[in-house]
Design a protein around this nucleic acid. Structure first.
Length: 272
DNA sequence: CTCCAGGTCCAGA
DNA sequence: TCTGGACATGGA
């Protein structure tokens, strides 16, 4: 199946650590293998065309939703074009989009991401999917994680995050409505609700809000963002994460989340 | 062996 | 409110 796109960069989108279930295989043209709505698929891009290794009709709409291909980015691009310090990242990775991923998967994955590295987060993603999910290689639901145990999670490589994920899964299972509560709340309120779960602090909450709940004021400040923001906007002063967050939201408002993704990816790729 | 990875939690100023 | 250290695990 072929999907015609505008302003879309598959590689930048899937390489910028928003999701952890896709595996990249580079043999010339990079291809990504993963699962979406229970359908296994491989994705690769040729110019504006996004190729999908399935002819299943229903998957097209899911892909357009997942990558948010219909979203008009003119506001974000207007902001980024004005941002001289980010010019190289914007030019190089234009088309990078914020993925709309499953809310629970985002919660779980970013609890796991804390003080961890990309490769290991990917491994754990697959461990959880293979061992806890009934459906073949899908990421496990909160019910399925809650039906596991701290010990099992520890054995799958979660380390000290095992109780965090387990207790949070139990909490969501007890009150699944909380996900809708978060969805309909504004950014501040939604964040207040999220950080009540164990393992979710301000940074993880911002990731979850941005990738899992489409709250675009969210601006996750991790070690990369902190380093680059200090360098570009604070003359290398040792400002706190909180100061950086406030600065970004004041400067970029509802585009902060998108700007963050270009800062993060540009920083990791070494162009900033 | 030491250091680090998309931080959080807890204790003590 | 703000800072310092502990915390599993695996790779460099």
């Amino acid at each position: 199946m072929k999907i015609r796109t505008k302003n879309f960069n598959l590689e930048a989108t899937l390489d910028s650590a928003q999701v952890f279930g896709f595996v990249k295989n580079e043999e010339g043209l990079p291809k990504y293998t993963g699962i979406l709505k229970g359908v296994n698929l491989t994705l690769w891009q040729e110019g504006p065309v996004l190729n999908v290794s399935t002819e299943e009709k229903s998957i097209k709409k899911h892909i357009e939703t997942y990558f948010d291909l219909k979203r008009d980015l003119s506001q974000e691009y207007a902001v980024l074009e004005r941002e001289e310090k980010l010019r190289e990242s914007f030019e190089k990775f234009k088309g990078l989009r914020i993925i709309r991923q499953d809310s629970w998967e985002a919660i779980a994955c970013f609890i796991i991401s804390a003080n961890n590295n990309f490769k290991r987060i990917q491994n754990i993603w697959h461990q959880l999917s293979e061992n806890l999910s009934r459906k073949n290689s899908c990421f496990p639901s909160f019910d399925e994680v809650a039906a596991s145990s701290e010990k099992e999670l520890r054995d799958l490589g979660l380390g000290y995050r095992a109780p965090y994920l387990f207790k949070t899964a139990q909490g969501v299972k007890e009150n699944p409505e909380c996900l809708n509560q978060i969805r309909k709340s504004d950014y501040e309120e939604a964040k207040r609700l999220l950080v009540q779960f164990p393992g979710i602090g301000p940074k993880v909450a911002d990731c979850v809000l941005l990738y899992g709940f489409q709250k675009y004021e969210a601006f996750p400040v991790d070690v990369w963002i902190l380093r680059i923001m200090r360098k570009l906007y604070f003359g290398n002063r040792k400002v706190s994460e909180k100061r950086v967050l406030e600065y970004a939201q004041k400067r970029w408002g509802s585009c902060a989340g998108y700007v963050q993704q270009y800062v993060f990816h540009g920083g990791r790729m070494g162009v900033l």
